[in-house]
Amino acid sequence: MTGVQRTVTRTVVVLLAMFVFAFALVPLYDVFCRITGINGKVENTAQAMVRDSIDESRVITVQFVTRAGAGLPWKLEVLNRQVRVHPGAATEVHFAFTNHGSTAGWGRAVPSVSPSEASLYMRKITCFCFQEQRLAAGERLEAPLVFQLTRDLPDDIKTVTLVYTLYPVDDKPLATKATSVVPGGET
């Protein structure tokens, strides 16, 4: 092997490695964000409540924002936009889905937490966002969210905002989506 061939082989290996690395960034990014909680992504399966004493000394304002994504004639409303909770206490909030369209369809609310650091301390015991909803035309559905902010929530966080965005779910790939294997990340 001449020097040139050796150099070329090595650079091509680096090249391929970097191409693979670019795609590996996708799961790595997801894992990194989940561990550090820096992207406002929350655990999207039901979590057990932490039996904790309630920290009466602190009051955290939790706000809810709901948004309709493109392509779904639905509305998501929250019945109480803002609650004040003590860390450690479980709170229930009610949301209502309304299908203003003329056809039945599937939709899903995708959550995001801000400030993103708070997502590590947000435990959801029940949430409508864990699964897709099916609504007939004109149907209205009330669904609860039960959450708990754990006591180790950092002191500088006074307000936590939860944003839910409604997205349409196609009928076709529903089978695969239920097991949450979507290329490019988990739902």
Partner: peptide
């Protein structure tokens, strides 16, 4: 139809 960058499909 992938969703690398589409929040609706779980991307970012």
């Amino acid at each position: 139809g992938t969703s690398f960058f589409n929040a609706a499909g779980g991307g970012d």
